[in-house]
């Protein structure tokens, strides 16, 4: 499957995956983040139940303390 992650095409060797699976595959480790799938914000408690499919557009934003 191919997805668009932060405006860049990324290929994964599978048909579909949950958000948590994508985070593990990409080795993303920061704890605080915002994820939008096709324009819809997905809250953290739905990372295990939200399925990402071929062609989905994902936006991810890391939140760093400071301000």
């Amino acid at each position: 499957m191919k997805i668009i992650l932060n405006n860049r095409e990324e290929e994964f060797d599978r048909e579909a995956m949950t958000i948590n699976e994508m985070l593990i595959l990409k080795k993303y480790s920061f704890r605080m983040r915002i994820i939008k799938v096709n324009g819809e914000l997905i809250p953290g408690e739905k990372y295990d139940s939200t399925i990402i499919k071929d062609g989905d557009k994902i936006h991810m934003l890391y939140l760093m303390s400071g301000g």
């Binding site: 605080m32 914000l41 939140l63 303390s65 400071g66 301000g67």
Partner: peptide, 10 residues
């Protein structure tokens, strides 16, 4: 300031 507050607000 705190990242968890940023996440909650957004």
């Amino acid at each position: 300031d705190a990242a968890d507050m940023k996440e909650m607000l957004i």
